[in-house]
Design a protein around this nucleic acid. Structure first.
Length: 761
DNA sequence: CGTACTAGTCTTTTT
DNA sequence: GACTAGTACG
């Protein structure tokens, strides 16, 4: 069978080039997944390469699954022996086999950001660093950057060269690593860094993998960081059969350490690289591509590409310039409703994209009011919800009680009368004797003496050991049920927050679904395996293609996806591009935002709608923003004729879509609860609570709307708490006015005008 | 030891 | 405005 028959010339060229370094510059929608899968099929079927020697690395689990599926469909057999995985899960697999060489136990746990935060808090306490002066988040961020650059605590100490703050940081970094190691844990960044460390320190281990992975492919190469680059470089060193696919114009993860130079300089690192450009786009209309090309051409230093299509011009871009964010959301929802009503699309054909997760709220509200089903991707990660973390902590404790954090999370959840003093006593003892926290719990009586505290701890320990001993005989599903039952978890939820209890139980139900699915998918499912899988999922991995619901997600989440109808919402300077990037001295920041815009535009297949609001509430205050500079970079003739004049308030054309309310329509019957709601994708809060929140928001907006400060220096004002005072200074800050007031009673205070709510007197 | 309130942070994006 | 962590009090 011809693996290459459905490819165009360029794609064929890329797929057939299997020896040596290859750079495939794949513009948006140019069929790169098709190239990768067909290339793999070609390697196996035509070139006689063993699937066992192929490694394909993707960015998300979803992409990995999709790729495996598509390879499976193409080749008759052997697809299962190809390694298709994400960077992180590949590293976990390798480390599970060899990390003992680095002095860790192979059943290490993987810490998420919350866990890391807890460890860092501990470190700060131990080093007696004032968390007000050095917030743990800043340290953690910096540590993450270091790890992405493969810089160790020792490297940092050396580089600090006497600088106090830098040395303090190096020390905290060192302590943090020790803390992780003591808990036998790795954080996300460690997974990559430790694998590189392993390969460098043990060449025979590296050789083993080099020997296996003779052909390596990396997807989304523009988003790799230095650690990932190094990992690939090491693996590919022996055979030099490395094929990377990416698009420098879609590099949007700089904040996470991605280094766009990896793709831009590929040919410098591999001078013999074969470069193939894929510029034919199979996704979008020419209008959409013209818009995308126009925007991205404002960036400098890119590999010049020009996307084209033979799909024809298509419909013009629509532009909605609404007065408020509510109207904007209303217009978008209306437009989707109308298209659906006219039978032009399914709900799922529509995606509303935005820059920040917070923007999803208003859209959700409007969807609910109109009775349209929707799914929100992202936001609060499913696995970071409190109830889910609790259950997982039980599972982790049962699986590997060396994870102190997990044990401490649940030792008093639900309440067992174990308090802070008891815990810190045990902690101290553990610290002094180099023991794990759980080990100390086991010996609580020796440490605390007879008494209520020791007794309570004893009950907890026996609960865990009973559950652990059952593990051999019962399924994971039964185990979770058992945990819930023995801890009376539901009862606790009902008592502590009755409003959310039902929703939280639903989430736990969803977790159980995942447990069941996991057990069905694996021949010999183990608890450790399950926990591992769960540690490495992204929100996008949970997007269900079968649900007919409008998709709401950030631009970042949308990468790699496509939709017939795309709504780019909140296109305002200050929001997108974000305020931070506008103010930055580094022009690269705006360029990154522009790439994000490019990604957004190129998600659209047929119809693109761009929208902006003249005013919007951000962090509780109303902002008035100009239409995004990116919109102005799109040639006007690509827009629909009735382009609204900017700055013109509430003209009748402001909303191209009829504003006849949808509430009279079938909406009322279709309350989007059960069927629509995919807890894994993160739909929150029941309908009533939302509606209430909504009216509150609106009230707030009305009050705050006209409130540019009506006072100035010298004026007398009143503050709700500080009483009367005299305004000393009023300076226009970046987001808001900063006002300095000399209060009669409370002294001089500097505050944000929007928060201070000062009354002129 | 547990609860209730307060203060502070957050909003860029996430494996 | 919303959420969280920390603190004061019962």
């Amino acid at each position: 069978m011809g693996a290459l028959e459905i490819l165009n010339d360029k794609q064929t060229e890329a797929a057939k080039q299997i020896d040596g370094p290859v750079l495939i510059l794949a513009g948006a929608g140019s069929g790169k997944t098709r190239v990768l899968t067909n290339r793999t099929a070609y390697m196996i079927e035509e070139a006689g390469i063993s699937p066992w020697n192929i490694l394909a690395i993707t960015f998300t689990n979803k992409a990995a699954d999709e790729m495996r599926q598509r390879i499976d469909d193409l080749v008759g057999f052997g697809a299962e022996s190809i390694w298709v995985s994400t960077f992180h899960s590949m590293c976990v697999r390798i480390l599970r086999r060899h990390i003992d060489l680095l002095g860790y136990d192979t059943n290490f746990s993987i810490y998420d950001t919350d866990d890391s935060k807890a460890v860092m808090k501990d470190v700060l306490k131990r080093l007696q660093i004032d968390p007000k002066q050095y917030p743990e988040k800043r340290f953690l961020n910096r540590i993450s950057n270091c790890k992405n650059e493969l810089s160790t605590p020792e490297d940092e100490a050396e580089e600090a060269a006497g600088d106090y703050a830098d040395e303090l940081f190096a020390k905290a970094y060192r302590e943090y690593q020790d803390g992780l190691k003591k808990n036998n844990a790795l954080d996300f960044d460690d997974l990559l860094m430790k694998t590189v460390e392993l390969f460098k320190a043990f060449p025979e281990v590296l050789a083993n993998y080099q020997n296996r992975f003779k052909y390596i492919m990396v997807d989304e190469y523009q988003d790799t960081n230095t650690a990932q680059f190094e990992l690939i470089r090491l693996l590919a060193e022996a055979n030099r059969n490395i094929c990377v696919v990416g698009d420098d114009d879609q590099s949007i993860y700089k904040f996470r350490g991605a280094n766009i130079r990896n793709i831009l300089d590929f040919e410098k690192v591999y001078p013999d690289a074969k470069v193939v450009k894929l510029e034919q786009n199979y996704r979008s209309t020419q209008t959409i591509l013209d818009a995308a090309n126009a925007v991205i051409s404002n960036n400098t230093g890119r590999k010049v590409k020009s996307l084209w299509t033979d799909r024809g011009e298509g419909r013009k871009i629509r532009f909605i310039n609404a007065d408020t964010a509510y109207e904007e959301a209303q217009d978008i929802v209306e437009s989707i409703c109308r298209a659906k009503r006219e039978g032009k699309c399914t709900y799922r054909d529509n995606a509303v994209l935005y820059r920040t997760n917070a923007q999803s709220r208003i859209l959700e509200e409007k969807c609910i009011m109109a009775g349209i089903p929707y799914s929100v991707v992202g936001g609060v990660n499913f696995y970071s919800r409190r109830e889910i973390k609790d259950i997982l902590a039980y599972l982790k404790t049962i699986d590997n009680a060396r994870d102190d954090l997990a044990v401490r999370r649940i030792i008093n959840v639900p309440k067992r009368g174990i308090g802070a003093t008891t815990i810190s006593k045990l902690d101290e003892y553990a610290q002094e004797n180099g023991l794990g926290f759980y080990d100390c719990c086991v010996r609580a009586e020796d440490i605390l003496g007879h008494g209520r505290a020791a007794e309570k701890i004893g009950e907890f320990v026996s609960l865990i050991s009973v559950l652990r001993s059952k593990l051999e005989f019962i399924s994971l599903e039964q185990l979770v049920d058992d945990i819930l039952e023995r801890t009376d978890y539901e009862e606790m939820l009902n008592q502590s927050d009755p409003d959310d209890a039902a929703e939280r139980m639903e989430n736990i139900g969803e977790l159980i679904n995942k447990v069941v699915a996991f057990e069905e998918a694996n021949d010999e499912p183990t608890l450790s395996q399950f926990l591992e899988e769960v540690a490495l999922v992204a929100d996008i991995d949970n997007v269900d293609a079968d649900t007919d619901a409008v998709m709401l997600m950030t631009l970042h989440s949308a990468k790699g996806l496509e939709f017939p109808n795309v709504y780019l919402s909140g296109m305002e300077d200050g929001l997108f591009p974000g305020y931070m990037s506008i103010c930055s001295d580094d022009p690269g920041e705006i360029e990154e935002e522009r790439r994000l815009c490019y990604v957004g535009i190129t998600r659209a297949m047929d119809n693109l709608t761009i929208s902006a609001a003249r005013s919007r509430m951000i962090r509780g205050e109303t902002q008035y923003n100009a239409v995004s500079r990116f919109v102005k970079e799109i040639p006007e003739d690509l827009f629909e004729g009735n382009l609204v004049k900017k700055g013109h308030t509430s003209s009748p054309q402001a909303a191209p879509v009829s504003l006849r309310t949808a509430s009279a329509s079938p909406s009322a019957h279709v309350i989007p609860q059960g069927g629509v709601k995919k807890p894994s994708v993160g739909v929150k809060k029941p309908f009533i609570a939302r509606a209430a929140a909504f009216t509150d928001l609106k009230k707030g907006a009305d009050i705050a709307a006209g409130s540019a400060p009506d006072y100035g220096p010298g004026d007398r004002v009143a503050h709700i708490k500080f009483g009367a005072g005299t305004v000393k200074a009023l300076e226009k800050g970046p987001r808001d006015y900063q006002v300095t007031v000399d209060f009669d009673e409370a002294g001089t205070k500097k505050m944000f005008a929007a928060f201070a709510k000062l009354q002129k007197i």
